[in-house]
Structure formats: C-alpha cells, structure tokens
Design a protein around this nucleic acid. Sequence first.
DNA 1: AGCATACGTCAGCCTTGTTGACATTCCAAG
DNA 2: CTTGGAATGTCAACAAGGCTGACGTATGCT
Lengths: 169, 169
Amino acid sequence: MSDGRAAQIYGGESLLFLTDEQLRQGIEAMFFAYRGFTADPDRILADMAYGRAHHRAIHFINRAPGTTVNNLLAILGVTKQSLNRVLRTLVADGLVESRVGTSDKRERHLFLTEAGQSLESQLSDAQRARMRAAFRDAGPEAVAGFKQVLEAMMDTDMRRAYVKLRDGS
Amino acid sequence: MSDGRAAQIYGGESLLFLTDEQLRQGIEAMFFAYRGFTADPDRILADMAYGRAHHRAIHFINRAPGTTVNNLLAILGVTKQSLNRVLRTLVADGLVESRVGTSDKRERHLFLTEAGQSLESQLSDAQRARMRAAFRDAGPEAVAGFKQVLEAMMDTDMRRAYVKLRDGS
DNA sequence: AGCATACGTCAGCCTTGTTGACATTCCAAG
DNA sequence: CTTGGAATGTCAACAAGGCTGACGTATGCT
C-alpha cells in the first residue's frame, strides 16, 4: 500500500503530489481545518442548549425547506432516533415546524420558523465569514481546486446529495 | 453580514467566488467530504473497541514519536482527562508505550509499539488510499488549491501546529 | 385484507467530550 | 532546604450525540 518516496514519473507527468508525505499533509490539513470550520458555530451554540447536531439539522432544513424526515436522515447519515432527539427539542423550542404531508400523510415536512431562521443566519454568518476569509486569502483558482478535491473525497451517495443540493433544488 | 448576490467588482477583479452561494457550497463540501475522510478508518475501528479519538492519538504519536502528553493535548485540542482515557486503553492494550522523560521526569514520552505501528499503518493506508484517489482525480493544481484554502481556514494555533508538522520535524 | 413505509418513542449502551477535585512527582527559585 | 508551581495521573460525575432493538400508530399500496 504505502508507496514510500513515490517520486515516479508516469506518462511523462510528475506524480510528486501523490507521495505519502503529500497525502499525509492533506490528511492533517483536513483535520486541522475542520476544527476551524466548526469552531465559530460551536462557540455560539455552546451558550444555548444546542450542539453541532442541531446546527446540521437547521442548516439542511433551511437549505431545503419542506424536506421530509427520511430525506434529512439520508443527508445527515444518522439514525432516526438520533435525529429525532434533536428535532424534538427544536420543535419544542419553536425553531422548527413539522407539518403533516398533504399527498402522503405519513410524511412530515420540516420548516424553520422565524426564530429558527434567525438562529440559522447567526450560525451561517459566522461560518461563512471564516469561509469567505479563507476563500479571499486563497483566491479563485485555489477555491476551485479546493472544491474539486473535496468532491472527489466524498462517498458516492454523499456526492450525489451534494451535487443535488448544489445544482437542483 | 449576508451579502446576497455579491456579484461585485472590486479593484477590477471578479469576486463571484465569494457569493453566499459559493460559500454555502464550500461549507457543504466540507461537511460531506469530512464524512468520507473519516469513513474508512471508522469502519476499521468499529470492529475493535476503539474510536476516532484513538485514531487521532495514534496518528500524531506516529507522526512525532516521543512527543509529550502536553504536546499531544495541544494538537488534539481536548482535555487531559479525555486524552488520558484514550491513552490508558492504548497503553493497556500494548499499542502505545509511555516512557518517563530523562531530562524532565515529569514528562511522559509516547511511542507506538510494533502492534501500534501495525494498526497505524492499517488505518493510514485506508485513509491515504482515499486521499490518493481524490488527489489523482483532481490533479496537482487542484491539490495545491485544496491545501491553500484549508490552511487559510485554520485557527492560528492550529495553523502553527500544522506548519510545524509539515516543515520541521 | 395484509404488507410495507414513514415516523415517533422508550430503553439502554458506547464513545468522547466536559468540570472539579485531589495526589504525585519533580524542577527551580528563594 | 523548603516551598511553589508545573506536568501528569486519576477518580467521579455529567452531557451530547452516536448506536441497536423493540414497539406502536398512521398511512399507502397491492
């Protein structure tokens, strides 16, 4: 597996960016960057009774208003019991509204209330500010590469969900 | 905060890559990609009594053999109690060796045993394989951009730790 | 009528984070 | 030499947020 100093030339093109050293740098970059990525919303949520799980639910409900529980389950990749615990508190606190489906009454469609949207903005603003600063520092070409690599790193199902959110809505 | 459709022109340069839409894509890309990033090691660890916390400890001990507990604490960003619980099991299971410092006997220097190195390779190989595939798919320029954006996204302390691991050792 | 689906919920477990309190060991400064 | 502070270890208690398993209720489809 480990290819050591893989300073190979393949098809006339240098593959120096695929050395174990380069890959390890990528791994550590992901680790450290993800910490920064979640730091600001985490700080805001720490004061309330909420955590990262609530943030994720709020984000994707805002992103796709009216989405069903099952849908959200698939995107978040958690069990319904886990999600339900989070949704229950959000509904109880009046941040999320759960409406029975019209065509299929088994389904519940999820919406943010005004209070929910307000919190979403707060969290989103903080996270976007950091992302904006990073994007600005790195420049457009770097941003394109950033997205390209991340997309290639996703599992197939997640990539589908990502692309669907990005392109269609 | 929210700048809506920020199709501004500033200093003659297009900032279309800084629209809220672009930033949201970046945010969701990080979320989905991180899931893929941790998926393979998580699967391996699920069979054992270990979790992601053990992986992180093993990774950085392998990366900087002989590192002190305090050092590891700073890098991982958790409390000593939290780390200690993980280290205790790893030492008990013979994956990590904790040697009393020679110059300062208060410090414990951490090393992977052979069994520890073996597990590290297993986890690392899985994670590197995915990273390698993503890097190969995206190409060298994308990889450069990827790292650039991630580095810009880190907190100052984490960036320092990242750069130190990357450059000096 | 009967099976499958969508959702909610209860109970219990695990990992991994947190605080707080306290003991030990050692270095260094007075 | 004593004492204070630093580094570490450990115990206890707790919370968030994952998980499985089981069960109940509507609803939809065949």
